[in-house]
Each structure stands twice: as structure tokens, then as C-alpha cells.
Amino acid sequence: MKLFLKTKDFSVSGESFELRRDEEFDMLITHPQPENLAKYYDSEVYISHTDAKISLVDRLYQWIKGYSLKKKIQIIDNQIDKRSSLLDIGAGTGDFLKSAISKGFKAAGIEPNEKARTNAEQKGITLHQDLADVKEHKFQVITMWHVLEHLPNLQEQIKQIAKLLEPNGKLFIAVPNYKSFDAKYYRTHWAAFDVPRHLWHFSRLSIQRLFEKENMEVVSIKPMLFDSFYVSLLSEKYKGNPFYLISAFFIGLWSNISAFFSKEHSSLIYIIKKKD
């Protein structure tokens, strides 16, 4: 595989990594992939495992998360006939699950990080540790909000997830898009590379090809418009720009404007089902 670019872990370790291009799946692969990934999540600054509202970035993240919860439920409702069973993989601190349960879903969640599970427990949400805990069940809806890029043994994990889906069920996957304008603009400093926690970096074609191997197809793709602003904000901070708020707003805005024509938004939600 050819070297695409070199970057580093800006948020936790400061270590350097390569992104190598897999031509078959049109995706980038983080190299090396550490054997002990847990230590790269063991940080107060890793916000998806906490409910921190300390910094401005924290508060923006939590505000965007609250808005996104409503949009995610709306997207799911537009794709299914009625609210039934739901599995959220990579449930973090349980906010999406809590929202889904309040809307009438019979919902379960998977979260390998102990700290995040503890935070979810404090909200009354009990999470399973891994997929093996629910392997005897089938779900109408499976969600993975910025999770697929974290999973080791990618194709095997996709195979397991496909088995958990009901015949007429739908899988909702949100992932960053390395072909977006903000990714190309920030390159090494693009926050959504987030190495080494993000092991894989997808394009629209990547998702299509990966799931075709499990006899599944992408039936719809939706943009996540706020992601370009949040990712640009972090990327500007990584660059050391003291005026990061202003710069991030304009880059995030231009990324969404350009994606109106190219369809290459900063992050995308893929709706996937089993082929008939």
C-alpha cells in the first residue's frame, strides 16, 4: 500500500503515524495500528467518553450532540415503518440510547470503554461490553455513530454486525469522509483522522465495497452538516491558530457549500440494508 500522508495524534500521545491507501477499498489505513489501543482512549480530553463541559470546544461538542440526537431519530424514523428493537454499537456515555428509549425503541447498547459505561450507568443506561453479549438477538435498527473507524478486524466485525440485523432491518453508520474539502484543506492537521483511534478512513466508495462483501447495499446517504464546523475547529486548534473560531467557521461553511455540488461532506450517514 502506498503512503498517503503522515500525521500524528494531536489529542493524547503526540505520536506519529502513517496513512496508507488501500486501492481495492478506496480507503486509508492507519499504520502502525497499536496493539494496546486502550491507552489512547485513556484521557480526560477524549470527549466522546465523557460529558465534559469545561472548555469552549467541550461546550460546543455537547451542544451539537444534543441537536444531533433529534436529527438521528428523525433520520431513522424516515427509514422504518415503526419503532421496534435498536442496537447502538459504540454507545459512549449513553445519550443516544437514552433518547431512543424515550422515543419508544426497545434499545440496547455496546460500549467497550469502562469509563464511558460508568457514565452511562449514572444516567440509568446499562451497556454491554461487546457484541458477544447480544449475539442471540436480532435488531430492526443498528446504529454506529462515528464507531466503524475505531473497530479492529474490520471485515470480521462487519460480518458479525450483519448477522445481528433483521432481514428487513437497517444499519445506520456515520463516519468521517477523507475526500471532503476540509480533509483536503487541513491534510496532516485534519482532526477527523484522529490517529491511532481511527484505524480506517473511508470514502463513499469504501463503505459501498466493504458492505457488498456481506451482501448488503447502501440505500441512502445523508450529510452531517455540523461536523465540518466542529472538525475545522479542532483542526485549527491543532495548527495553533489563535483565531481558530473565525477560521473554522469559514472553512466549515465552505466545506458544506462545496459538498452541495460534490456530495463529499465532512461526515456522512450511510443507511444500509441486506440485499433482497
Rank of each mutant, 00 (worst) to 15 (best):
K222F: 13
K222G: 00
F226I: 10
V219I: 15
I207Q: 02
S228A: 15
Y270K: 06
I257R: 05
L268W: 04
L234D: 03
G240L: 07
E264A: 08
R209V: 01
L253R: 08
F249I: 05
W190M: 04
V231S: 11
F250K: 08
K213E: 12
P223S: 07
F260D: 00
K222Y: 14
K213A: 13
S232I: 06
G252A: 07
K275C: 11
V195M: 02
F229L: 14
S267E: 08
H265S: 12
H265D: 12
G240H: 11
K274L: 03
L245R: 09
W200A: 02
I246F: 15
V218R: 02
S206N: 11
I272Y: 03
F226N: 11
L205S: 14
D276F: 08
F249V: 03
K275S: 13
W200K: 02
S235F: 03
S258H: 13
F226P: 00
I272P: 01
S220Q: 14
K222S: 12
E214A: 12
N256A: 07
Y244C: 06
R187N: 13
I246D: 01
I246M: 10
F249K: 10
S266M: 04
S220D: 15
G240D: 06
L245H: 11
F229R: 07
D276K: 15
D276V: 11
S220V: 00
P223K: 05
E214Y: 00
L234F: 06
K274D: 05
R187W: 02
S266H: 06
S220G: 02
Y270C: 07
A192G: 12
N241Q: 08
H201M: 03
V195L: 02
S266W: 02
F249Y: 14
Q208S: 14
L253G: 09
K263F: 10
W200F: 15
F260Q: 13
D227E: 12
F211M: 04
H201A: 04
N241T: 12
S255R: 08
H201V: 04
I269F: 07
I207T: 05
Y230I: 08
S206I: 09
L210G: 11
I271P: 02
K239E: 13
I257N: 07
H198L: 05
L233F: 12
K273M: 09
L233S: 06
I271M: 05
K222H: 15
